[in-house]
Design a protein around this nucleic acid. Structure first.
Lengths: 220, 220
DNA sequence: GGGCGATTAAAACGAACGTATGAATCCTCC
DNA sequence: GGAGGATTCATACGTTCGTTTTAATCGCCC
């Protein structure tokens, strides 16, 4: 194994296993065994398990969010107010397009990214807050411009729905494949991104219209 | 402690802790300690940890899905084709309205329900498949009727988005509260359900319209 | 080519886990 | 009121976990 290779290899395998099984359910032994490296290597290159998953995130999250911001700026300078679909696209697309694109090595991270929302590791939540906070506020600002009639609070709700759609698709694409008996398979291809963008943008526009109260229907 | 109380008490506490920390990260000792019962009580009343979470699910999932189906039938007999918003409502609302409604004891389950999508425990996935499979097909059927121009495969995608919105809101409502600095708080109240319903239905209608291809924009 | 920091390897540590065991206690019913 | 099943309790077992330690090995530079 070449020099410096072990560290990257551990990161790759850890990313995949964490994404598949979750943080708590994935042991360092499972990782080092799958990576065919010594158990001690993890505590040598990374200090602890918690630090390892921190490194897994640090490697990818930055580039993704940078691309998000770049796309957002692009669609803001392209039109004023910016096009709604373009904003949503700027948020969703970069997740499917990190690192050297088609490399299967990178396919695991989106799932892991989605998973961190459920497994709430304090150390990661903290980092997520630092990184996601400003990012979300930035998108909130753009969305508010594209949806001038939507109250600020409602914009946050729309963003929550957007994140939900994205994360769920990232996380349980294969589950869906099973449910639909293979009819819908989750591949990080353009059609899926477009589907999400179209769906989300339409939902946001409907929220803006503030149509008359839905008639009190069945319970709740 | 009254007779038969221990078992229910364990279920309640386990439900809450599993929802908060996840299955793998929650030890039986943490549960029994929080419930102030003996460690052995878990293995006495429930055989194993895996069986415990199975019992937690079994207690709630049935009633929720029954209510979903009842609402679905209601809105199908109310209009033909059924109203789109009513179908979506039938799927979403029951989750917020299980057991004796406002009881805070029951507030934890929705989060847990959402979490099982990320922590994929084989035993639960199996059960989920059995229960969710027919349910999803049933909703697929209704949605197809309400969205006659939407191909069957696209209906599944829309349902995936719907589940994503629901689950994400269930799971990270408190996280959102933090992000938005308390501006949006997640409470199982009617306004939130309506927000989700409106958003989702609009997204589905947009999917149906199959508008002209979005012009090739930025990468991916 | 020998010295030396960087890395890998093997083994062991204490802690925490899920589970099993057997005695103690409670509750019910005759 | 005491027999007997149901339940609770304290304790221990074997495993696995994350981490540590100590020795062996590699790679490079003077």
């Amino acid at each position: 194994m070449d020099k410096g290779d072990t560290k990257q290899h551990i990161l790759d395998v850890a990313e995949r296993l964490f994404a598949e099984k979750g943080y708590a359910a994935t042991s360092l032994r499972a990782i080092t065994q799958a990576a065919e490296v010594n158990l001690g290597a993890v505590n040598y290159h990374f200090v602890s398990k918690e630090n390892l998953i921190g490194a897994v995130f640090g490697r990818r999250l930055g580039p993704i969010n940078e691309r998000r911001l770049r796309l957002l700026e692009a669609c803001e300078s392209a039109a004023q107010p910016p096009e709604l679909e373009a904003i949503v696209h700027a948020f969703i697309a970069p997740v499917f397009l990190h690192g050297d694109s088609a490399s299967p090595v990178h396919a695991a991270f989106p799932k892991l990214l989605a998973r961190v929302y459920s497994e709430k590791l304090d150390s990661l939540i903290e980092r997520q807050m630092e990184v996601y906070g400003p990012l979300l506020r930035r998108f909130h600002q753009s969305l508010s411009r594209a949806l001038p009639d939507l109250p600020a609070e409602e914009v946050y709700w729309c963003m929550e729905f957007m994140v939900g759609i994205l994360n769920h698709c990232l996380m349980s694409g294969d589950l869906m494949q099973t449910f639909t008996q293979g009819r819908c398979l989750m591949a990080p291809s353009r059609p899926i991104v477009d589907r999400m963008v179209r769906f989300t943008a339409a939902g946001m526009r409907a929220a803006e219209q503030r149509q008359p109260e839905i008639p009190t229907r069945l319970p709740l």
